[in-house]
Design a protein around this nucleic acid. Structure first.
Length: 806
RNA sequence: GCCCGGGUGGUGGAAUUGGCAUACACGCAAGACUUAAAAUCUUGUGGCCGCGAGGCUGUGAGGGUUCGAGUCCCUCUCCGGGCACCA
């Protein structure tokens, strides 16, 4: 028989809702230990909550409810990352302000979150598009500007022709716009940048301190891409100028047979000799860096002088050398670099081997062999040679050690409407002038049309009345900056605002910040590894330098929920029509079943595919749990005393074990095994007819974080008046009272033959006779010669034998 | 090409870190209840051999270390993810 989940869930949700959910409100100051459990706040899209959100939010909810019962002061807030393109596109289509769309969606999201029983502290709700919120986002930008970390520069940047805006490096995935999937192009635009590269070293080093999944740390390390190497100057023949190259392989310098400049290099045209000028000019014009497979290049006609050998090295131009990395010029060592090799082959340039490659097959080019053909450095190891050659170059003034990063500065302006306006003014007299703090927030104006201009400029350009202003410094007529911030800006510091969401004087009160930061557990998807998570760390470190926050990292522990694929094993998306809406599951099976199902599908961090038929398993479990509660209620208290003492001791021991297991598994996000341990325990109670209210109520407590509605219902059905959130988690004992029994495994040659129950912590001599008396042991020993006996206390005895030979 | 993960029944997945492989659940099969079906309950369920007790075999492949390997080491292979003319 099914249980009345609809009635039960409605009932307890309305109890929790009293006083605006005050039971889940975090106390800023108090004697309890704090824990800050944070979800990556969602973008309130028109599609509503999907099972991906639900999975992560259920996981953090379980930990939050568990923590409350373990006497923690829990901060578990929720809010809305509401700037961004979908709302803007909707606004363009409907000719309405994006806010109307956002408000409606937020209402839907909240209703859904309540319907699955998520225990957020709603008194701290925030919304990045609220001027009372983005006032502070703008203030942080002004601080960055003040410290010289925000600058405007014309640079070739990624541009999305469909979204009609510039993008950050991080927003381009495989040459496509991260948001809309259109192919991006490179455009020269005058854009605001944030100098994230100034923090590269710290962003890299501090990863070591964090309790994050190793793969995410590795993604950030690769993205930052630190390389140690040398800058080496190659004098140009018949000139006093030098070409500076960057290499991580100074040891291969004797193998350099030509130089290659990126087409963006300043010297390209200057170096082009008469006969070659036309060719070079043509090459520079047509190169578009589209085709990465074809090797192209052009000779300048000039030569450089090798700083050690004095050889003449031809200087070439090719787009396989990048303009934006290193010094946009390389020394080509075709014998030991694959790309240089391909280029040398194509244009018949010399190849000179300078490192021993011991084995043709399997060894990488970077293999640290010994040097060949390298004058006094010959026979040194590659590593040693790099040092010595580096030192020598330094001595003669042609080289120095240096560190380069792959990380680029963050392109921070967007030519769109629905973002925080950049609070700056262009004054014909004073130049770029920041607004005063008292003039924040600089609110977005209402427009007639929100469509991008198509000229590469923001729609705000059209709001003439808003654009026209006066310079904050000289008070003469001036014009506002019309670019807006990217949608990542608001999410860079929202976890700070939750701590003090209504503060009118500062981002948040210092004392409160000190109480709550850092975030102890941050739950979200892996897709933000080099976007939000990198940007937020950058801003946090900046705020740390301003002494606004007291920790140098925002998120101590990070947990990624694995994505939930659709039933077809494809990523859920509207266009594929495989999106599963949690509402339909709640309707059919109830919120508790949905929660349990999501957590039982597999490890929290693993990729899972949605297979609805498995929901029967957890739903049946809840039915049985409910029924067991009903049965207990129907019995008189006298029945309980009838359970045999031995049976009861065993049950208590199993309960203890289950409690330890479930607690551990919640703390480590192994929810699937916590649930199976609970299932096993209920199976055990049923099979052995252990109708003990006391024991069962402890199981109900263990299940409360997972299935709060039904657990609370059973709790109250069995005569308890309290709210489970305020109850204490069952206590565990580390040692059991009586003599502990263990199951000893008996192996022959490492293979299990039998097992027997013995007292724990015994030496082999004490139990030897018992073991030898086992029939299986006797027969096995009879037919063999015993060579050795291995005994591991409390675990195993292994008889090493060989067959009797006749 | 480089860097991370991962490969266990028909399926999702367990295995306290070197000590009972396949817990828990799905599915399937048989049975009970039912006029019937659904729901529910009971039993069985890695493969091979055997009526049976039982035996053999088994965690992508091959080798190694060990009394003992899903777990550690080496070689290979396949799958997933990330980065990529980054010098």
């Amino acid at each position: 028989m099914d249980y009345p989940f609809k009635k039960i869930e409605r009932k307890w949700q309305s109890v929790w809702q009293k006083n605006n959910f005050s039971i889940w409100r975090a106390k800023d100051f108090g004697p309890k230990k704090k824990i800050y459990i944070l979800d990556m706040f969602p973008y309130p899209s028109g599609e509503g909550l999907h099972v991906g959100h639900t999975e992560g939010e259920t996981g953090s909810d379980i930990l939050s409810r568990y923590s409350r019962m373990n006497d923690y002061n829990v901060l578990h807030p929720m809010g809305w990352d509401a700037f961004g393109l979908p709302a803007e596109n909707y606004a363009i289509k409907m000719k309405k302000n994006p806010m109307t769309f956002i408000s409606k969606n937020i209402a839907t999201f909240k209703k859904q979150q309540r319907s699955i029983g998520l225990s957020f502290d709603w008194s701290r709700e925030i919304n990045t598009t609220d001027p009372n919120y983005y006032k502070w986002t703008q203030l942080i930008f002004l601080k960055l500007f003040e410290k010289g970390l925000a600058y405007k520069a014309e640079a070739p940047i990624n541009f999305c022709p469909s979204c009609k805006t510039g993008l950050a490096n991080e927003e381009v995935v495989e040459g496509k716009c991260e948001r809309c999937g259109a192919e991006t192009t490179i455009k020269n635009l005058n854009q605001w940048h944030l100098k994230i590269t100034a923090y590269a070293e710290r962003l890299l080093n501090d990863l070591d301190k964090l309790n994050w999944p190793e793969n995410i740390k590795e993604l950030q390390r690769n993205w930052i891409g630190r390389s140690e190497g040398y800058e080496i100057d190659f004098p140009i023949e018949f000139s006093d100028k030098k070409i500076r190259v960057f290499t991580t392989r100074a040891d291969t310098i004797y193998g350099a047979t030509f130089l290659v400049l990126a087409p963006e290099h300043n010297f390209c045209l200057k170096l082009a000799k008469d006969d070659y000028y036309f060719l070079v000019e043509r090459y520079l014009k047509k190169t578009a860096r589209q085709d990465k497979t074809e090797t192209t290049g052009v000779f300048t006609g000039s030569h450089a002088i090798h700083p050690l050998t004095g050889d003449r090295l031809p200087i070439w131009i090719s787009d396989y050398v990048l303009g934006g990395y290193g010094s946009a010029a390389i020394m080509a060592v075709p014998a030991h670099d694959k790309r240089d090799y391909v280029f040398a082959k194509k244009f018949s340039l010399p190849i000179k081997q300078v490192i021993q490659i011991p084995n043709e097959k399997g060894l990488p080019f970077e293999n640290y062999g010994q040097l060949l053909n390298s004058e006094e450095f010959t026979d040194l190891s590659s590593k040693e040679a790099a040092n010595q050659i580096g030192n020598y170059l330094k001595k003669i003034g042609l080289g120095k050690m240096t560190i380069k990063y792959r990380l680029r500065d963050w392109i921070f302006s967007r030519q769109r409407y629905w973002g925080e306006p950049i609070p700056l003014v262009n004054c014909p007299r004073c130049g770029i002038v920041p607004l005063k703090e008292k003039d924040l927030p600089l609110k977005l104006p209402k427009l007639k049309t929100y469509a991008p201009t198509g000229t590469g400029e923001s729609p705000l350009k059209n709001a003439e009345a808003w654009v026209k202003t006066r310079c904050p410094r000289c008070h003469r007529p001036a014009r506002r900056e019309t670019d807006t911030m990217p949608n990542w800006a608001g999410s860079c510091w929202y976890y700070i605002r939750y701590i003090d969401p209504k503060n009118k004087k500062s981002l948040a009160d210092k004392k409160k910040l000190k109480t709550w930061l850092p975030v102890d557990v941050y739950v979200g998807g892996v897709e933000h590894a080099v976007l939000h998570l990198l940007y937020a760390r950058f801003w946090h470190k900046f705020l740390y330098d301003l002494k606004i926050v007291a920790t140098d990292e925002p998120f101590q522990k990070l947990v990624n929920q694995g994505i939930v694929l659709g039933p077809d094993n494809q990523k859920m998306s509207k266009s594929k029509g495989n999106v599963v809406n949690p509402d339909s599951i709640v309707k059919k099976y109830g919120a508790d079943s949905l929660r349990l199902f999501l957590m039982f599908m597999g490890p929290f961090e693993a990729i899972k595919s949605w297979d609805e038929k498995n929901i029967n398993g957890v739903h049946r479990f809840l039915i049985r749990l409910h029924r067991f509660g009903q049965r207990l209620k129907a019995r008189s208290d006298k029945t309980e005393t009838k359970i045999a003492a031995r049976k009861k001791t065993e049950a208590l021991e199993r309960l203890n074990w289950t409690t330890v297991k479930v607690s551990h598994d919640i703390e480590t996000f192994n929810f699937n095994t916590a649930i199976s341990a609970s299932m096993e325990f209920l199976n055990y109670l049923e099979d052995n007819k252990i109708y003990s209210k006391k024991i069962f109520l402890d199981l109900v407590k263990l299940l409360f974080p997972f299935a709060p509605h039904l657990s609370q219902e059973i709790w109250s059905n069995l005569g308890k008046k309290t709210i489970l959130d305020k109850e204490k988690w069952p206590k565990t004992k580390t040692k059991s009272a009586g003599p502990r029994k263990i199951t000893l495994i008996v192996q022959f040659n490492g293979k299990k033959k039998t097992s027997l129950v013995v007292d724990a912590d015994k030496e082999f001599d004490e139990i030897k006779n018992m073991v030898l008396a086992e029939p299986k042991v006797r027969t096995n020993l009879k037919n063999a010669v015993l060579i050795k006996t291995v005994y591991v206390k409390n675990a195993v005895v292994n008889f090493v034998v060989k067959p009797k030979t006749e």
